[in-house]
Structures are given as C-alpha cells and as structure tokens.
Amino acid sequence: MRTTLLTDGPPRQHAVVFDTGDEVVDGLTGWAEQQDLPGSSFTGIGAFSSATVGYYDLDEQEYAEIPVPDQVEVLTLAGDITRDGEGGWQVHTHVVCGRRDGSTVGGHLLRAVTRPTLKVVVTTGASHLQRRHDPASGLALIDPDAS
C-alpha cells in the first residue's frame, strides 16, 4: 500500500493505492490508526482477486457473509472512517463488484484482496467521528453528539 497527500486542505485529501495481494479493510484501518485521522470519508475503484461482502440481517443482528471468490472489478467503493467507541478505528465500507459476465454483487465489505490495484481517495474532516453501540440494531452507529 502506498499513500500520498493530494491536498493540504481543509479538507485534506489522501490517495491510498493498494497493490496486488494487499488486504483492503485491514490496510485502510491500520493506515487510519497510524495517521490518527479525524472523521473521514472515501471512494475508490480498482479490482479484487477475492472478497467477502456482507448483508446485515437486522433480525439476527449479524452479517450474512457472501463469498466472492472470483476476480472482480470494483465498480464503486464508498465508506467512512470513525472511532469505534473503544479507542480504536472502524472502517465502514460498502462495495459493488462487477463480474466477468456483467452481473454484480455488493454489500458491506468484510474482507478483500487487491489484484492488480485499488485506488482510494480519502477526504478528512476537522474533527473525529465517534460510533456508539445501538442496542436496537446491534450496530455501532455514528453519534454526532459524541464527536
């Protein structure tokens, strides 16, 4: 993974480029922690050699995993980076992947391996965003009052 500052802002923009074999969610989370990023959002395009996306089952309060074992194009990658409420970082990402036959699969990105590249532009805000556990959904949701 390679990074560069695109604009010094505000807001700041960073280019984060993943290379073949890089794991996306862990890589982005580690980089955010290293940079001590304030509230951030991102978009990206590229390709994966494999991925796992999830569909959140509200009744079960867990993600149903959808394996994507094939080479796919990343048609849309979008998300945010926040504090997780326990001092760590949470990368929340949704993705739409295009298959060879033109069909698509999408959902919450749980894991993905880059091949050959993934280009992500991260835009950082002025303050941290914080998540809080929501008992009704079982999710950690952004709490603007805690930021």
Rank of each mutant, 00 (worst) to 15 (best):
23 E>P: 09
26 D>V: 15
98 G>F: 04
105 V>G: 05
20 T>K: 11
48 F>Q: 02
96 V>M: 04
74 V>K: 02
77 L>R: 01
49 S>Y: 00
138 G>V: 01
120 V>I: 11
117 T>K: 05
83 R>A: 08
93 T>K: 01
126 A>L: 15
38 P>Q: 13
66 I>M: 01
91 V>R: 06
37 L>P: 09
110 L>A: 01
20 T>W: 04
64 A>P: 05
29 T>L: 05
106 G>S: 03
70 D>E: 08
143 D>I: 11
127 S>T: 14
39 G>K: 04
72 V>Y: 01
128 H>N: 12
81 I>D: 04
76 T>D: 03
107 G>S: 10
139 L>Y: 12
31 W>H: 06
81 I>C: 06
5 L>Y: 00
147 S>G: 15
30 G>A: 15
61 Q>I: 12
70 D>V: 04
87 G>E: 12
135 P>E: 09
65 E>M: 01
27 G>R: 01
107 G>F: 03
122 V>K: 10
133 H>Y: 15
81 I>V: 15
92 H>C: 10
126 A>P: 07
102 G>T: 09
51 A>N: 05
79 G>H: 04
95 V>Q: 12
120 V>W: 02
120 V>F: 00
34 Q>Y: 03
24 V>M: 08
32 A>V: 13
19 D>E: 13
84 D>S: 12
28 L>P: 06
136 A>T: 12
45 I>H: 10
102 G>V: 00
84 D>K: 07
18 F>C: 04
2 R>L: 02
133 H>D: 03
38 P>D: 15
30 G>M: 08
140 A>K: 14
25 V>N: 04
117 T>V: 12
118 L>W: 07
57 D>Q: 08
68 V>Q: 06
8 D>C: 07
26 D>L: 14
31 W>F: 00
133 H>P: 08
126 A>E: 15
139 L>W: 09
27 G>Y: 08
24 V>I: 13
84 D>N: 15
51 A>F: 03
120 V>D: 03
136 A>F: 06
109 L>M: 01
29 T>S: 13
99 R>T: 09
128 H>L: 09
135 P>Y: 11
139 L>N: 04
27 G>H: 05
147 S>T: 14
